[in-house]
Design a protein around this nucleic acid. Sequence first.
RNA 1: GCCAUCUUAGCUCAGUCGGUAGAGCAGCGGUUUCGUAAACCGCAGGUCACCGGUUCAAGUCCGGUAGAUGGCUCCA
Length: 657
Amino acid sequence: MDQDRKTGRQLLEERGQFGNDVVAVEVGAGTAKEIFDLHTPLPVGATEVRAIRQNDPKALPIIRHSTAHVMADAVQKLFPGTKVAFGPATESGFFYDYDRPGGTFSDSDLEAIEQKMLEIIEKDSPFVREPKSREDLIAMLEKMGEPYKLEHVQRLEGELTIYRHGDWIDLCEGPHVPSTRFLKAFKLTHTAGAYWRGDERNPMLQRIYGTAFASPKDLKAHLKALEEAKARDHRKLGKELELLAFHPWAPASPFFTAKGARIYNALCDYIRELYDLHGYEEVITPQIFDKELFETSGHLPAYYENMFLAATKEALEKASKELVEKPPADAHQCEHTLTEHLRFGVKPMNCPSHCLLYGMKRRSYRDLPMRMADFGRLHRYERSGVVQGLTRVRTFAQDDAHIFCTPEQIEQEIGDFIDLVYRVYRDFAFADPKIFIATRPDQRIGDDAIWDASEKALIDGVSAKGLPFEIAEGEGAFYGPKVEFHLKDALGRSWQLGTIQADFNLPERFDLTYVAADNSQHRPVMLHRAVLGSVERFFGVLIEHVGGNFPAWLAPEQLAIVTVASDYDAYAHEAAKELRKQGFRVTVDDSHERLGSKIRDARLRRVPYIGVVGAKEAEGRGLQIRSRDENADIGFLSLDEFTTRLRGEHRPPSLRG
RNA sequence: GCCAUCUUAGCUCAGUCGGUAGAGCAGCGGUUUCGUAAACCGCAGGUCACCGGUUCAAGUCCGGUAGAUGGCUCCA
């Protein structure tokens, strides 16, 4: 039967479309496209066949996955006894997981592996696909002594295949490049630990990451882009520009310097202005609550390990006394006694306190939708290995708000919120975010009927805006599903910033009601939403996005006046004073340095405007202005002219004019 | 939390084979008054992250702790 089926190569040759740069073929049309090796017999009746050539973006995952095979080959040749697990292509390269008995891989190992890989590639061995019966495959893997592959086979169904290049074999469904000669540019980048099957209860394997491209030129460009991204890293820039700092005594908790705080507050003030326009009202709520609150909200059971409990002397005394009187049987019981007496918890999120505030008064349908905003500080005990710069911290604030509304109002509110999100992201010149709808997780509160309604509400709300989205199965919060808005940082990592979540659970738990027009009582729906997400995280992503060059409306220093010589200091201070009266943030550098040195300093601080002051400027009551963004001297401007210019940029784009 | 790596002056980094601590920038004091990315001279600045061990001797070797970094897992 197979004799009737042609391979991709045969088909392309017949059509005169074959060439030395063909990597694989893509079969089918529309959403039903599938990629095959050149030498694999294609499905019967395959007519829509397209060659994937070396430089096609679709060739990249094939090249990378094939390189991963060669790496595993090299590793097993160099380190006998090493077992292989999985080795897929990723968004920016590939990895392969290994179990190396009693060892890990060092940087010098990586070099040796790269050398061995080059040797393997030079042999120009073809990648050969061989279908195998399950029994044969299991026998083969047992003989090879590959326990991870063996375990994997047990879970697979249908036709199984192996791929062979040279004398190395891997259980794999392909596709692969025709031969190792197509692997022209690769680099092993780093090692890491990774759990087998991504489960932390499983043993940890050694993962080696690498990247590969169609040509050395592409690889070089990629490595260069990585270098450039590193230069924009918010941790590096945050330190250099003196925006933020960390101290070991407050792990994962940023300090914002005067400059950093200026930007931080500008971000919050900007959101506050939009709140006025979008019908939100800001509230301030407590930091520390009786645990009753978190038991009612469901946080304590669901969120215990991430919460800071607040110990007091009184609580410790009571707990100690009980422990002495009734010694615990085991550590678990001891912990129970201790936490029993710790009466207070630090809030990890604002929603429970907003429920309290809502419930303190009779609410009418006329009050809805009620949009309650809060920049309250939150504390979450993140595990030590997960914290990172500003993007994952233990203390932060969100531009948080909760919308209490009727079920009928949900769609409208989601629509309004999406408008707000896009307005904000445009003000920061971000590309459009990627939208995910995260559905019910395994650990959750509330009935499935409620989850059905919540998920539908979100999908309807986003669909009504005509925006594309993807479903993130099981990624929702424990109290409700989420719409997530993701943006990418300079290193290409995707971060969730904005979110809106439908919650029918908390209003139930807090027994929140409103009185309808007919005097009957109803349960409001609660929408949790944030545009920036965490202000800290947004700040971090923003630093990288602008590379430290904050637009004038955010810049902590908008104009640096530098004097040519000390004779002009007096005028410089006068001009600064006048401009500060306009609300501008102006500094004067009257140090006894040379002009070039002062200019350099101001440029390194990424100040949007530098105003040089000498005899001409003092005489003409103006400034010789250099613009950071135009990277040029834009000439003499009178103080009035400069005021007009800066006033235009002094406000967020969508709030100008 | 797990695997790996790192931690030397305010910052960026040297420090050889284990032999007792260095530079540049920043800071401070002088000199210089200068027109668009670094003037010159001098001074000061260190419990080499912390705790312990090996050694005649530890920044250097070993163990532990903390923090950070790259991943994994997690992420309301």
